[in-house]
């Protein structure tokens, strides 16, 4: 990859952390180059003057899609928990949680 990568290996490692992925050193190198190549391609839009255009989050302008406050059936608990990696007393079991929720 002869082009200058727009992101660094450190950024790739940081992003992997945010995404809860672990990369080998080789993967860091490959991803830095590959993501860089994609971002370099995206330079064609980052240089556009798009002032005044409303960002498009949805294809169609629907609004106010609401449902009535009426209860519906819950899942069968045993069926739900059958798909879980670890279960105890009707609950999903996980190991130690380090740190409170933000």
């Amino acid at each position: 990859m002869s082009e200058q990568s727009p992101l660094t290996k450190e950024e790739v490692i940081h992003v992997a952390g945010l995404a809860r992925l672990e990369l080998t050193d080789d993967e860091v190198t490959t991803f830095t180059a590959q993501l860089g190549s994609i971002l370099n391609h995206a330079a064609d839009i980052s240089s556009l003057d798009l002032e005044g255009l409303v960002p498009m989050a949805h294809p169609f302008d629907l609004e106010n899609i609401l449902r009535p406050d009426v209860p519906t059936a819950s899942l069968d608990r045993e069926e739900l928990l059958a798909g879980a990696p670890s279960v105890e007393s009707g609950r999903f079991k996980v190991g130690r949680i380090l740190g409170e929720a933000p």
Partner: peptide
């Protein structure tokens, strides 16, 4: 920028 391009 991608969302604006999408609009464009």
């Amino acid at each position: 920028q991608a969302q604006k391009t999408r609009r464009l």
